[in-house]
Design a protein around this nucleic acid. Sequence first.
DNA 1: GTGAAAGCGCTAACAC
DNA 2: GTGTTAGCGCTTTCAC
Lengths: 341, 341
Amino acid sequence: MPRPTASGHHGRVTANRTRRPTIVDVAAHAGVSKSLVSLALRGDDGVGAATRDRILRSAAELGYRLNAQARALVQGRTGQIGVVVTDLRNPYHAEVALGVEEAAESEGLGTFLANGRRDPARLAAHVEAMIGHNVEGLVVVSSRVDPDILAAAADRLPVVVVGRPETRTPGVDSVANDDAAGAGLAAEHLIALGHKDIAYATASNRPAARSRLLGYETALAAAGLRPRVHRLPDAHRRDAVDALLDSGATAVMANNDVLAVECLGRAHERGLAVPERLALTGYDDTELAARAWPRLTSVDQHRPLLGATALALLASRLGGRTEDRHEIIPPTLVPRASTVP
Amino acid sequence: MPRPTASGHHGRVTANRTRRPTIVDVAAHAGVSKSLVSLALRGDDGVGAATRDRILRSAAELGYRLNAQARALVQGRTGQIGVVVTDLRNPYHAEVALGVEEAAESEGLGTFLANGRRDPARLAAHVEAMIGHNVEGLVVVSSRVDPDILAAAADRLPVVVVGRPETRTPGVDSVANDDAAGAGLAAEHLIALGHKDIAYATASNRPAARSRLLGYETALAAAGLRPRVHRLPDAHRRDAVDALLDSGATAVMANNDVLAVECLGRAHERGLAVPERLALTGYDDTELAARAWPRLTSVDQHRPLLGATALALLASRLGGRTEDRHEIIPPTLVPRASTVP
DNA sequence: GTGAAAGCGCTAACAC
DNA sequence: GTGTTAGCGCTTTCAC
């Protein structure tokens, strides 16, 4: 196949795009061999200063850009890690990803981000695609990826899951917030404020929700109080919230901020003063909590730290660790006006 | 360099990772040539059924995965597009990206996502990195990328900006919400409700904010009302909001939902009934608006559509279009309880 | 200092 | 049907 004749044209603001220049083009332009170009571009000394300048000038003039894939192919490494998240619309995931990115950046690693959009099949496909793109490690910010997929991935590269999957996968590290402790903090906070009738509201029954429930029950038991759990399913949410508000509880711990804010809105509509008649706590410390009125007491899982920890686990695997690790990050209570008048 | 001896081991749940198998390994395992493996894996007919089965079985057994980079190198295309956003923590960006992704997926294109974290230098670096990874098109969900960077990128591949940059860059397509129309909708809504004293609140003076202001002023002028603009800088926000609430306005249009929710909270604190004493509108129709109390009237820019439109522009450039296009998406008013009792 | 040559994993043209 | 070969853009010995 004859090589397409390189046109002399290389306009900057032209729709007339030319073939992407390679080091061979730069070499020809500068009148040297292609290996010299490679060395010069990477700043290797062992290239004369004059030659190097000439090469760099040629590269700039031609608009040369390194082809990362070609380099990765020969070097056998890409310097990239993959981050696959359940749903980027959820700021929780976005902030964990942020933590991963920042930590990766300071390790000199790039990040490919993929969004599963809540579809397990798509999540699995993204995991596979990441491996296909030769990432050097994978952070899965999701509790919905099939363990088989994770195991297969972990057979090729370090994999760490952020969150609480239904089961742990051998060979896969994990990082999670200490849900039981977080719920305990919120419960103890309410108990300390003198509440005797504290209800727990959740829409989910997944591992994280179960752990939080456990923390709630433990704290109440320790104070000799009776736990009371309300399921708030997506359907009939309104009725379930009303039932909760009518239950006589003076405080409600919600499994997350969205649920809490929903209860808050309904309390307003029914004229229930918050926190005087009803104290409310959320979980996650999202923007929603910080901007609700009254501002919502919540539990901060330290999302960026979750992400940074995930990257640290990846790094230590890359450094040779072989035994599995499961990190638990202690959360923090953020008291606000929804509990403290 | 002698090739590392391929160990026979290929355990699934072992930390003992082996060299990644290539088509050569699969070929050896199946007792055929590597080209036959390549054909079989891509489902080319011209491979006997029995042979193909044997090859596929070998591939599965070895845990073979296609090396996307190697394929891209030889094919000259990656089938990937790049999406670079200002800040993924902002759900606006996340949802635009979502729209791009979905549209790309249905075109058979994969997506690399990169997060600029509000840093123009990092945004620029991501744009460059995307080109290095040989994406076939680039969507920049940001109004902060230097025009020179965009121009240089557009010289190599199709580039479309979502949002309102300070200046348009020749060779770069764009998609934006019709800010003036959106602000007009909100203003007309308030005017129709009988408000005579409508203030406009903004913290920004960037192009999008300026367009919204223009739409506001135009609508008020048409109704013979006097416009009144309040700047709410990040510093002294509280005082500025108080001044706004004390100004005698019966309605406030905020430049975005965050600002609106801030005014809303302060109104609650000062006992101003919303919407009876003060009507409020936001912009963006974020989750914040939908969950505030009372629920906030806002303007929906149709974020996923912005993203999908960006991808359509990319696709038509890839199809050969050379003249620039600038799409404007009409927004929609979402009336809620913060204006309508 | 500089250049020639081999090879990363894959595809595609062409022979057998 | 099947195998051989060249080559994508780059890095990396190894000679000169």
